[in-house]
Simulated assay, not measured.
Amino acid sequence: MEILLIRHGESEADILNVHEGRADFLLTERGRQQVRLMAERVQSEFPPQIIFGSTLKRAQETAAVLAETVRCPVEYLPELQERDNGKQAGLPYAEGNLKYPMPDLPHLAIEDGETWFQFRMRAESVLSHLFHRCEGHYDRIAIVSHGGMISALLQSFLRMPATNVVWFESSDTAIHLLEKVEPQRVVKALNDTTHLRDLD
């Protein structure tokens, strides 16, 4: 089974230079252009049979456009939301970093937020759930989510330890293509944004 991991398009938080995380911003007009280009490429090269999306607005809109373009069902799962950054969400970068810095230790959380261990376990759990549900029923699925969650999903897919120093970058509407053929787990593409090359 192939798995497409897709990040949402540019959001209003990117323009405002604020911490996003659980702050629920919409896509910008540029973000919507990015999403249309991504959806056209996915339809042409690797259309999924079902899409699972985060319930945050920027990912919901991205997943909805993709589903309409490739003409397949979409389901929204709160487990695919970005890491809960608590009181940091929505604050300007400088203010958020000063008042609520991200803890260095994986068992600690920003106030009212989520620890790294909790976040990684959420990624492990939702990936395991989707594998159990989809294997044998679909040849290709898509997951539309956020940069932090996609990095955690990739770590989980590759069976990396819960504590590590690896970060998988995801640009706006980046596509990561994976394949699960037990006992192998294959990475076919990472952070692919060639569909955006002609966007000004």
Rank of each mutant, 00 (worst) to 15 (best):
S54A: 07
S170N: 14
G147A: 09
T115M: 11
A59Q: 02
R71M: 12
S44F: 09
L108C: 09
L56C: 00
C134S: 12
N164H: 08
M149S: 09
V126Q: 06
D112C: 11
P161D: 12
D198S: 13
T28L: 07
G96S: 10
R32L: 10
F25N: 02
R22N: 13
E124G: 07
S151Q: 05
D14H: 14
P92W: 06
L26R: 13
R36H: 12
K99F: 07
E82L: 09
M38T: 02
E2G: 06
M102R: 14
Y100V: 01
P92V: 10
L190Y: 04
G147M: 08
G86I: 08
N191T: 10
G113T: 04
H137F: 12
R197G: 06
P48L: 03
Q88H: 14
R133Q: 12
R83A: 08
E45G: 07
L27Y: 01
C72Y: 03
Y138W: 10
A64W: 09
L16A: 09
R185D: 05
Q49Y: 03
Q43R: 14
E45I: 14
A174Y: 01
E182P: 07
I141N: 01
Y76D: 04
C134I: 04
H137G: 06
E182G: 11
V186I: 14
S171L: 14
Q33A: 13
V187G: 01
T173N: 08
G148R: 15
E79T: 10
S54F: 00
R133G: 03
T193Y: 06
Q33V: 11
I51M: 08
D139L: 10
E10G: 02
V166M: 14
P161F: 09
A189G: 09
N97H: 12
P103K: 15
L56D: 03
H8W: 06
R120W: 11
A174C: 11
K180G: 02
S156R: 10
P48D: 07
L178V: 02
E68I: 10
S125A: 13
K180A: 10
E135Q: 11
Y93R: 11
L178P: 00
F46E: 11
E79C: 05
V70F: 02
R122I: 05
M38E: 04
L130K: 06
D112T: 09
E135L: 14
A67N: 04
V42F: 04
G90L: 12
A162I: 13
A142Y: 00
E179T: 10
T62F: 00
V181Q: 13
N85F: 12
I51K: 06
L16N: 07
L177C: 07
V18S: 07
F131V: 15
P73G: 08
E169H: 15
L4H: 00
A142Q: 03
T28I: 10
A63E: 02
D14T: 06
L27K: 03
Q155L: 15
P78N: 09
